[in-house]
Design a protein around this nucleic acid. Structure first.
Lengths: 206, 206
DNA sequence: CTACCTTATGAGAGTTACTATCATTTCAGG
DNA sequence: CCTGAAATGATAGTAACTCTCATAAGGTAG
């Protein structure tokens, strides 16, 4: 292949490695074909075997990439950037305002193509009970995570009672918006969520 | 179908009927043996077949009583009384205060024996991911239910934006307390929840 | 370029939750 | 007692996983 200079192409700069790239491609292929089949036939009617066949891997390999069928849909890559954006918010902002700012940042950075995929993903999760369940299973984890981040910002411990209650209310509102928002309403999801958080900031007046 | 007077023996008074009683006993037997086995061997390690054998029924019968293994644990008889108690609260109370009152009513009415079972149930659900997930799956339903009840009390429509946000925060706090409360802390769960709701009533000050 | 080692993959068998169907039994009412 | 309905049990089948082992491919060192 090459002569003398470097075996690895730029160790620090890029070079995910040939192997890694193949893995990423396989993972993407499985996800894409899975989403397509779910759309065409429905989630329950699509078997793992079908997905594996479409992606040209064995069922064994499918489960190596995704521990469960549900995880094909639920694997979310949006949380890490959201956390980063939250921590990058000006430190004088109270937690709810900081969350609103972070959301806006992440959304604006998302290319429209991925945005469409994200919407399809949300719609699917909302329509399949099994997915809804697993989605919310992350609640406890996310609660812990949110508590840590908020606590750090406010300068308290994560297990502080008031931090717990606040993050609980926060996530409750996120989920409630998630479920009650309908695609046809014209307004997009994050605008509604932003309004809901603003309402919380105002002390939930009726 | 029937003639004129009454096919059912004592429609209003009592008479659950021999058949009904047997069904109730079978259901109770399945649940008891299941909980015992879960406690002894763990949830995952216990198969439906084992439960059915212990309760002296066939696996088929098990699934007739409980559509899924999870439902043995998750079947909850505490929600209806809670709703009734909520609606019985004085109408001048704001929704959060009404919920706190309703909770206290239900708890005080619960015999200590059932209370112990309830605690074991909660502990089991909290420790098994699968059960946590299914538990939270009811979130959407409960959200809808809560929205209806609160809306009725406040004199708005259930799909009102502010009602949604409030009930979302409410349930979020319930769940957060549910997860973060530890049995060993000495204080009982409903006392903690009551304090959390009081905190929400106060506008979530930090 | 070869030898080697790590890692991804495929194939097979096995477990378990659940579904569907049908025969048999059990209960309730005439 | 008899007759229709409902509960039960047995059986077969599906599909999501899990485990194990052999093979192939990717990267590394000599």
């Amino acid at each position: 292949m090459s002569s003398e200079v470097a075996t690895q192409p730029e160790p620090g700069t890029a070079g995910p490695g040939l192997r890694e790239r193949k893995k990423a491609r396989t993972r993407a292929a499985i996800r894409q074909h899975a989403m397509r089949l779910f759309h065409e036939q429905g989630y329950d009617a699509t078997t793992v075997e079908q997905i594996a066949a479409a992606a040209e891997v064995s069922p064994s390999t499918f489960f190596r990439y995704f521990p469960a069928k549900e995880d094909v849909v639920l694997a979310d890559d949006l949380d890490p950037p959201l956390i980063a954006a939250f921590q990058a918010q000006p430190s004088e902002l109270p937690p709810i305002a900081a969350l609103r700012g972070a959301m806006r940042t992440v959304i604006d950075a998302l290319p429209p193509e991925e945005w469409a995929q994200e919407r399809a993903r949300i719609a699917l999760i909302r329509s399949v009970p099994e997915l809804r369940a697993r989605m919310m299973e992350g609640f406890a984890t996310q609660l812990q995570l949110a508590a840590e981040i908020v606590a750090e910002r406010v300068g308290r411990r994560p297990d502080d009672f008031e931090i717990r209650v606040l993050t609980g209310a926060l996530l409750g509102i996120v989920l409630a918006t998630w479920f009650s928002w309908s695609e046809e309403s014209g307004t997009d999801y994050y605008t509604v969520l932003d309004a809901a958080l603003a309402h919380l900031e105002a002390g939930l007046p009726l």
